[in-house]
Design a protein around this nucleic acid. Structure first.
Lengths: 248, 248
DNA sequence: CGGGGGGTTGATCTCCTTCAATCAACGTGG
DNA sequence: CCACGTTGATTGAAGGAGATCAACCCCCCG
């Protein structure tokens, strides 16, 4: 898949689907007005790079729709995904020149971007933005630490179950897709991307998904559509017993 | 070792060793004054818990001296260290009741604590604190993500080398202990704690340290004192080639 | 029809875990 | 001062979970 560049689109903050969850969530009308002046939309097609590791970043922004990944790569080519960016997630780091990671669109992606310098200035004058960003960063830090447990201590089977339960829970919180008690969702990642997220090979990912299917923990329709008949069972397989930890 | 509780000590912010690096780094004299009113010192002895996972936290604070670890534990006892807390590091999460992790003092520890509610109120009125906390949290997030690469993709030998080079670099930035070109430091962790940090067993840690010693990458004096004759070599072993990534 | 991307499955290999013995340093009490 | 237990660390032998290498399938698309 080639990067064909980006298209520009426009939208009003009022009908923005991530208005209440993104960095701008706590902004008042007048503050939004200021943001509108420094914002612009960009569209990326599936497979294209939003940012290259090491590159200078002249913007920060929010994922409006679609999914992107945050990955690190070693010289010899080994890669580790360090974050999954979903709608409302923030991209970029105020106060730093370059990006430490590759950001890649895994689906078609729309981002709401802010020019970096003006945004940094706004952060100093608009507590609502800085506070929201702090909150979001603390959440991401918790997520990263939870993932460290997954990477460091869980078995391949538990890793897969952990990933599935995270995606399932996220989808459940957005939509109401609990048809007849069983959760349902589409995997937004290829087997290879899952492997990069879980610190495994794609073969192991495939085998463990097959094993979970054989054991009735999940039901597959095609390669990507997953049905979870018993969420508690899945979380048990993930090693996260029952409660699953309180979400923000 | 038993937890004998904590002793209280006092200190003035002016001669505080972490004054310029902790959450309070950007505070002006008047803001420090306010902090002084809600602050108190606590001393923990090596091996004792600062916080238990799940417990309600009525304070947040900074590590003044000593070292603590942040660990997560699964029901079956598997543990993963998710953070190493050094002087100036922040403990606790504003806006959340309980702690998600165990915080354990690995050496004797002194903490500068702030009562949580007043601190949260101050965060809303004092941009200097919120801004500094955001900066520190973003740094921690980067560190956590770097560690995800270590946990997910590196070999045991590379993991050990990564840990050693991180500790070496940190020590180098604090002290000037580059006697005759070779860095020198003491390991602040037992083999078991290193294993918990690296997602390994303590036996593997021991074996890989021995191997690095045999290969001349490090020199050991006793079990804990490490000499690194060639830092570039160590970083090569860690898989972080040469530059080592830009620090903040 | 051919080709390529994504996915599954099999056979083998290897690195790390597991289980276990041993050792050095240290403290404690007889 | 020496036997004893404890704690941290090292080392050995055996086994296994996951990596690696490789074949093959499915499906879409040109």
């Amino acid at each position: 898949m080639m990067n064909l560049g980006s298209m520009t689109v426009h939208q009003d903050c009022d009908d923005c689907p991530i208005r209440h969850r993104a960095v701008c969530a706590r902004c008042e009308a007048d503050e939004l007005q200021l943001l509108e002046e420094i914002k612009y939309y960009r569209r990326f097609e599936a497979g294209s790079h939003v940012i290259w590791s090491g590159d200078k970043m002249d913007f920060v922004g929010s994922v409006v729709s679609g999914i992107a990944t945050l990955t690190q790569t070693m010289e010899d080519g080994r890669t580790q995904m360090v974050g999954l960016l979903l709608p409302s997630d923030f991209v970029g780091r105020p106060g730093r020149e370059g990006s430490a990671y590759d950001v890649v669109a895994t689906t078609d992606l729309v981002m709401c971007c802010f020019r970096k310098k003006p945004f940094e200035r706004m952060m100093e004058t608009t507590p609502a933005i800085a506070q929201r960003l702090l909150q979001m960063t603390l959440d991401e830090l918790d997520a990263a630490r939870e993932w460290m447990l997954v990477l460091g201590r869980k078995t391949a089977r538990e890793k897969i179950a952990s990933l599935l339960s995270i995606i399932a829970r996220r989808d459940a919180s957005l939509n109401f897709n609990s048809s007849d008690g069983g959760l349902t969702f589409d995997l937004p990642l290829t087997r290879e991307a899952m492997a990069d997220y879980l610190g495994l090979t794609l073969e192991t990912v495939s085998r463990q998904i097959s094993a979970l299917k054989k054991d009735g923990v999940i039901v597959l329709e095609g390669k990507r559509h997953v049905i979870v008949p018993d969420m508690a069972r899945l979380m048990e397989e993930a090693g996260d017993d029952s409660d699953g930890g309180l979400l923000a």
